[in-house]
C-alpha cells in the first residue's frame, strides 16, 4: 500500500528543539516546540518519540532535514538527508510559504538575523556578531527577574502609555538600566515597553545596519510570540510586520522543504525509521593531540559504533557526511 509521503524537519537550537512534519504541498501536519534545556540528545529523542506517536496513520517519511546550531548532532542521530545552516533554512521556509516577502527578521534563542529575499532567492543576510542582547534568552532572563511569565511579557508592553528609554546596546547595561528605572518608580508596563523598543533599536542598528528593509516584512523565531516586540518593530519601521502562523518552527519547516527538494532530485532517503532513535546515543568529547590546536572533537556513537564526529579544524576526525550533503544539494 502506498502511504502519504511526508517530510520531517528538525531545528535544534540553543533554546528550543523544533520538529515539523510536512506533506508534499508544504502544509504543516504536525509540529512540536520543545525546550532544549542543555540536553539536545534526550530532547531530540523525546521529540522523535512524540512525532512517531502522533503521526497521522499511513504516512511514510520520505525525507529528513536538520538545521540549527545542533544540526550536525541531529543530522547524525536521525540520518538526515540534508544538514543545512539556519539562514538557508529560514529563507527557504518563507520563500515557499509567504509569497511577496522581501525581508525576514528572525530572533531566536541566542542569535538574531536578518535575511533579505529578492526575486525568489536569498539576496543578503546578517547575523548578530558581538552580543546576544535582545535575543530570546535575554528576554527569558528579564521576565524571570521581573517575576512575570514570558508569555505575558508582550501583552504587558502593549498596555504601556509612556515607555521609558532603556540602554539596549548591551545586555548587562540594559539590565542595570532597567533596575535603575524600577528604583525610580517607573511602572512595569513602561519598563517592559521600553525594553522592547531598546531591543528593536539595537537590532536595527546592529544586525539590520545598512540593509534595505522592504515589505512584506516577516517576523519569526521564538521572540515573534512577543506582541510588544512586534509592535515596536512596526513603530520603528513604519510598516506592517507579518508574524506567520508557524513563526516558532520556521527553521524546521525550511529543513523539511530542503529535504523534499533533495529527494525530488532523485535521492533516496537515508532515514531508517523511528526505531533507530531508540538506540543508546552517547556523545563524548576528547581533545585531539595531533597538533598544537588541541581541537575539541565531539564523537557521537550509538550501539557501540561511531556515527559521526565533528569539531576538528583539519577534518581528520569529522565524518564526511555533512559535507557530502552539501555538495549533493548544490549539484
Amino acid at each position: 500500500m502506498n502511504g502519504l509521503e511526508v517530510y520531517l524537519g528538525l531545528d535544534v537550537g540553543s533554546v528550543s528543539v523544533n520538529l515539523v512534519l510536512l506533506d508534499e504541498k508544504y502544509n504543516v501536519l504536525e509540529k512540536f516546540y520543545l525546550r532544549t534545556q542543555g540536553r539536545p540528545i534526550e530532547v531530540v529523542k523525546e521529540g522523535m518519540e512524540m512525532m512517531y506517536r502522533s503521526m497521522p496513520a499511513g504516512c511514510i517519511i520520505a525525507g529528513v532535514g536538520a538545521t540549527g546550531s545542533g544540526r550536525e548532532l541531529a543530522g547524525a542521530m536521525v540520518d538526515a538527508d540534508v544538514v543545512k545552516n539556519e539562514i538557508t533554512a529560514h529563507g527557504m521556509a518563507v520563500l515557499q510559504s509567504i509569497p511577496g516577502a522581501q525581508t525576514i527578521l528572525e530572533i531566536g534563542g541566542q542569535d538574531s538575523k536578518i535575511i533579505l529575499l529578492r526575486n525568489g532567492v536569498v539576496s543578503d543576510f546578517a547575523m548578530n556578531t558581538v552580543c546576544a542582547a535582545g535575543t530570546g534568552s535575554f528576554l527569558d532572563r528579564q521576565a524571570a527577574r521581573l517575576g512575570i511569565p514570558i508569555q505575558e511579557f508582550g501583552a504587558l508592553a502593549l498596555k504601556s502609555t509612556s515607555p521609558v528609554r532603556i540602554a539596549g546596546r548591551c545586555a548587562v547595561f540594559a539590565e542595570s538600566d532597567m533596575i535603575h528605572k524600577q528604583q525610580m518608580g517607573c511602572s512595569l508596563e513602561d519598563i517592559i515597553k521600553g525594553l522592547c523598543e531598546a531591543l528593536v533599536r539595537n537590532y536595527l542598528n546592529n544586525v539590520g545596519k545598512g540593509k534595505e528593509i522592504l515589505p512584506d516584512i516577516v517576523f519569526q523565531g521564538g521572540v515573534a510570540a512577543n506582541e510588544g516586540i512586534k509592535r515596536s518593530f512596526e513603530d520603528a519601521l513604519g510598516q506592517r510586520v507579518i508574524v506567520p502562523e508557524h513563526y516558532d518552527v520556521m527553521g524546521a519547516i525550511g529543513a523539511a522543504i530542503l529535504a523534499h527538494k533533495k529527494i525530488r532530485q532523485g535521492y533516496t532517503t537515508r532515514f531508517r525509521g523511528f526505531d533507530s532513535i531508540h538506540s543508546d546515543f552517547t556523545a563524548r568529547s576528547f581533545s585531539c593531540s595531533g597538533c598544537a590546536n588541541l581541537c575539541e572533537v565531539v564523537e557521537l556513537s550509538s550501539a557501540g559504533s561511531v556515527k559521526a564526529r565533528w569539531g576538528d579544524r583539519c577534518g581528520k576526525w569529522s565524518s564526511s557526511a555533512a559535507r557530502e550533503n552539501h555538495a549533493d544539494i548544490l549539484a
Binding site: I87, T88, V121, V122, S123
Partner: peptide, 8 residues
Amino acid sequence: RLEAFVDL
C-alpha cells in the same frame, strides 16, 4: 555564515 553565503 560561509555556508549561507555560498548557498545564497
